[in-house]
Design a protein around this nucleic acid. Structure first.
Lengths: 229, 229
DNA sequence: TCAAAAGTGTTAAGTTTACACCCATGA
DNA sequence: TCATGGGTGTAAACTTAACACTTTTGA
């Protein structure tokens, strides 16, 4: 049987596959994308999306996690596959199929790693440079998907610290949808979404008066989902 | 330069890639999926999603079109990539990465092809058999994506004939969302969407009284999109 | 003559939007 | 003392949902 399959397959071509990753975070009231300074090959010196080759015996999704952990030191982060980019000429030197992912991380978790190296940089989404190949298209596709996903599930919170103020949350939502929100209406909506729970902690960094800190409660979110039916 | 890239790449593995396709159509008040009787290899005799290998120098999306044209004789049909399925053990005999697509077709366009061969069959979505490997998961993923896409863009009409009745359209929407619609409210919504234009033709097949036939007007749709801003 | 689908408006409920002022505090 | 962000409620506009009967005609 095994032999039969090998027979059938033997005339078909094989391809290199890389996982590429658009890493988003939110700070300074803006969505940012993490880029890496390429240190070898034809694109050396240019900014590129974090990427790496898929290896034998490695699930393509796990491969993306491994690659991202290698670049950022972060594990257990929110990631989702966007789609494959498989144009024959997307990369001019070799046929390479790219499988695109995006990740949502809290920048603060990553700061110590970042400081160790000067070959990564956060770019505000609106100031991402022109990049080689189809990388800008990849970012657009990742943004579109991230926008959709955050509408359906509160995964955008992965771009914030575990404790956040109402203002941070509102600015995040404004940045994702590129549209301002009424402060009072926004607060009402968040209060309905009771899985975003008010803590008794006060943030004093962002204002003189101090602002209540909120946090995401997984358990309450599950309850909320059940109730919504 | 070319040599450098080859050097860099030479130790990385390569993979077989197949495009799989979930072909949807709508008739008899139900969404249907097209399956093919496998005629060789380890799954011989089982129902499988139409699939085929990606070839050298072929865009991965074009490959899906070529494969589907070979199975159905249909060209220029609506297709969208869903995502890659790349678990290391998804196919037990060889490492194969699958790139999933879905297609929306009008069954009538395909009937003459279908009659030529008895190795394809339309299954109502609710009666799709258990299939090998991750094919049932693929169908679920394709349904989810198709559902979303039809909410955002009127691509569901690709599953109907060019001329359709209000009832057909309503049943289609009910089937996609698995939820009944109020007849009068539905009609109101369609009338707002003026790109679905009333013709002067009457369908006499589906009812004794006869029903007005509608059709999708591309030009009006573009105008509608511009006005919505 | 009757079964089966076609066609037709109104009202209540719910959701979304718009809007302006006082509060607390650190610099 | 003032600049900065924090915090608060209501009413109008709009959207969505609920609802029942008459028409046509082929079998």
């Amino acid at each position: 049987m095994d032999q039969t399959v090998k027979e059938i397959f033997k005339d078909y071509p094989k391809f290199y596959i890389v996982d590429c990753c658009v890493v988003f975070s939110f700070f300074n009231d803006s969505i940012h994308v993490l880029l890496v300074k390429q240190d070898h090959g034809p694109s050396i010196g240019t900014w590129v999306l974090p990427y790496g080759f898929v290896l034998d015996n490695e699930d393509i999704d796990n491969s993306a996690r491994r690659i991202l952990a290698a670049k950022t030191g972060l594990e257990n982060i929110f990631m989702e596959q966007v789609r494959c980019f498989g144009e024959a000429n997307r990369y001019p030197y070799e046929r390479v199929i790219a499988c695109l992912y995006y990740a949502l991380i809290n920048k603060e978790d990553f700061d110590e790693q970042l400081n160790k190296s000067d070959n990564t940089k956060w770019f505000p989404l609106t100031e991402v440079p022109e990049m080689k190949y189809d990388q800008n298209e990849m970012i657009r596709a990742a943004v579109t998907r991230m926008r959709y996903r955050t509408m359906v599930k509160p995964v955008g919170l992965n771009m914030l610290p575990p404790l956040f103020t109402m203002r941070q949350l509102r600015k995040l939502v404004e940045a994702i949808n590129n549209k301002p929100r009424d402060k009072r209406n926004f607060r009402k909506i968040v209060e309905e979404a009771y899985y975003i729970e008010k803590t008794m902690l006060i943030d004093k960094k962002s204002s003189k008066r101090g602002a209540v800190l909120y946090r995401f409660n997984e358990k309450l979110y599950e309850q909320y989902l059940r109730e919504k039916l």
